[in-house]
Each structure stands twice: as structure tokens, then as C-alpha cells.
Amino acid sequence: MNERLAQLSKAGVSVWLDDLSRSRISSGNLASLAADLGVVGVTTNPTIFAKALSDSDAYADQVAELARAGASVDAAIDALTTRDVAQAADVLAPVYEATRGYDGRVSIEVPPNVARDTEATVAYAKQLWAMIDRPNIMIKIPATLEGLPAITQVVAAGISVNVTLIFALGRYRKVVEAYLSGLERAREAGIDLSGIHSVASIFVSRVDSEVDRRLDEIGTPEALRLRGTAGLANCRLAYQIAEQLFSSERFEVLEAAGANRQRPLWASTGTKNPEYPDTLYVSELVAEGCVNTMPEATLQAFADHGEVAGDTIAGRYDAADEVFDSLAVLGLDYAEVMERLEAEGLQKFDASWAELVATVGTQLKGAGA
């Protein structure tokens, strides 16, 4: 296994790949990444699936079958994506077994048209869980206000959840509380808590992109000095929240009943600013019990020249607070920035889904011609 990524894993960071395709599975590439680069999980989203379908003919036979059966676009999307996720879960099943469910996970997202509908989110999450029928998957649920009670209900049903689209620290705190509430309900229902796992996906580079844009507009030396600091500070303070809430008496009761901690997951970890090191959001977010899901370019970059210099999160909370204090002095409104990022994230979610719908629709028509 690659020495640099082995060091990252040894430091407590689970390395997940933010990409999936049928050809990646059938060619043995995913298995190779697991063996050689220490990949122990996979995350997906509609954009990833749309690209996979556009770039490969690996789906042609199944698309043709779906077209002959008269499948709707939505039904075809479910059939195509759940097959990929099931196959990837099978590839990572040995990791899942070796880590007793801690890793070996593959995530799949509920569609965006249910992101603002609690009950619809719960129903779709249960549908995806049943369709894939693998213990090592996670259902991705956006951390919208409507998504919070959905998280509780889905966890209460014994389903593992990847909470996505988290930006604000206040919202992250509510995500953890939703998870804890779900565990409490699951325990009351007699469900084995040890089989329920969760991660909370906190976005990194998007925070810097938005904050840096505003700092560039201010243009003072003080403002420019703070470029590239907000995303890391936000994640470090989120990790502090996790330490606090999962050391609480409330969680200790659940842990005694077999519950697992919800791990912070660093998402959007490919640097968007070419001035920043391409491994910035990996090497600077190292701590025990977290996940980093990387695009393959970031994964390969870290394998080539990434560095692990011990824990780069714990003990840096005061400095992270100072970053946001300095941003506030410059007039940046933290709450407004995070609200904008969530709104934009949902818009991108919708656009990604529309792209996937268009791609699958076109292929169904072509196969049925």
C-alpha cells in the first residue's frame, strides 16, 4: 500500500473515493485503489453518475433492457445507480467485514426533489436501502431543515446515513442531535445500534471559494491574509463540536448500548484555487476518527507528495475561532455566507439531477429507437 496514504490511515483518517462508475468496478480499478491506495469507502452523487453514463458504454445493455421494459426515466436512474452501488459495496465487503462495519461503505443520494420534504426523503431512503440490500451502504440525506427530522427517522429504522451538504456549524450541531435522536428511537424499538453507522459531510473548498471571493473584493492586506483559512477553520470547529457531543452523558448511554459515533467527513476536498497546494484539504484535516472523501486527482496527488504531520485539527480550535473573529471584523457575516452556500448547494444538486435525467432520458430513447 502507498506509504503516504498508509500514514494518513494510521493517523485515523479513513480514505474514501468521491467517484464511481461501472467501468471502474468491472475493470478492477476500484479493487486496486482499495489494495494499493487504501481506499476504504466510496461516495457518489448525480453528477458522478451522469458523467459515468456519458463516458462509457458499460451501461448500454442495461439501458437497452430498461428501454424494452418501458421503464420511466426515474425508474431507470434508480436501476442503473443502485446496481453500481451494490457492486461497489460487494467490492468493499471485505473492508466492511475486517473493520466490523466502520468502513467499506458506499453512499448513494436521495434525489433533490425530496430535499425539502421530510416524509418523501424518509420514504426514498428506505426504498434505496431495500433496493440495494447491502449492509455496507449509506443513504445520503441533505442537511436541510426538512432533512433533519428525516435523518432521525431513517436512523431510527436502523439505516446508516451519510448526512450531506453541511456548511454552518449551527446546522452541524443539529445534524449530530438528529443522529442521536434517531439512535434513541432505534434503541427503544429494539434495533441493534451497533449496525447503524453515520458520517456528516462538511464541505471545505466551497467555503473558501465564497469567502475568498469576498476577501478579494475587500482587497486590504488584512483581508488577503485570510484567504484560504475559512474552510479549514470551519472543519476544525466542527470536529470540536463532535468531540463535545460524543463525550456527553447522552451519548455515553447510547454507546453503552452499542452505538457508534457519527464521524465528520471532509467533502469537496479538491482545491479549486490553483494557488493552494493540491493536498491542502487532506494534510491540514488530519485527526482520529474522521473521513476524507477525495476526487481521484486529489487521491493520486496525496499518494505522490502528500504529507502527514500528525494531528492538524485538535489543539487548533482557538486559532480557528480567531479566523472567524477576524472575518467578522472585516464585515463578513458568517450566517449569511453559510446560508448562501446551502442555497447554491441545493441549486447545484438540482442541476446535477437534471443532467442525470437528461442523460438517462437520451440513452433510453436511443436504445428504444
Rank of each mutant, 00 (worst) to 15 (best):
Y179V: 13
L280C: 06
T298V: 12
V114R: 02
R214W: 00
L280E: 15
A351P: 00
F167V: 01
K272H: 09
L145K: 08
T271H: 08
S201I: 05
L265I: 01
E243C: 07
V286A: 08
I218N: 02
Y334R: 15
A230T: 00
A303C: 12
L330R: 02
V106L: 11
S56N: 07
A79R: 15
A123H: 06
D216F: 07
L80C: 05
L169W: 06
G366I: 03
E307G: 00
L193T: 12
S209T: 15
V91D: 00
A76F: 08
Y317D: 03
M131E: 14
I196S: 09
G258T: 11
K348R: 15
T293S: 11
S54G: 10
S56R: 02
V13R: 04
A93S: 12
R185D: 13
E322A: 15
T293R: 07
A58L: 02
T121H: 04
L17G: 05
I166T: 11
Q153I: 00
D78T: 11
V163Y: 07
Q363I: 00
G310N: 06
A31M: 05
A157Y: 13
L53N: 02
D192H: 10
A320L: 10
L180D: 08
L327W: 07
V13E: 04
A69N: 11
N234F: 10
P135R: 04
A58S: 15
L364G: 04
S205V: 12
A297Q: 14
A130S: 10
K140R: 07
D90A: 06
R24T: 14
A256W: 04
F302W: 10
S72I: 09
A157W: 12
S27W: 08
N2R: 03
R171G: 09
V95M: 01
Y59I: 04
F49H: 02
G147Y: 07
S247H: 14
E355W: 03
A256S: 13
V154Y: 01
Q87H: 00
R185T: 11
Q127T: 03
A230S: 06
L92Y: 13
A157E: 13
M131N: 11
V154G: 01
G38M: 05
A328N: 10
V163L: 07
S268L: 13
A50C: 02
M1C: 04
V13L: 11
S181A: 14
L332R: 04
Q62N: 08
Q153E: 12
A86L: 01
D117M: 02
S247V: 14
L33E: 01
E184M: 06
S248V: 03
A367F: 12
D216H: 11
L237T: 15
N113S: 10
A115E: 09
A267R: 03
K174S: 13
G38R: 09
T152K: 13
I141E: 05
A309N: 14
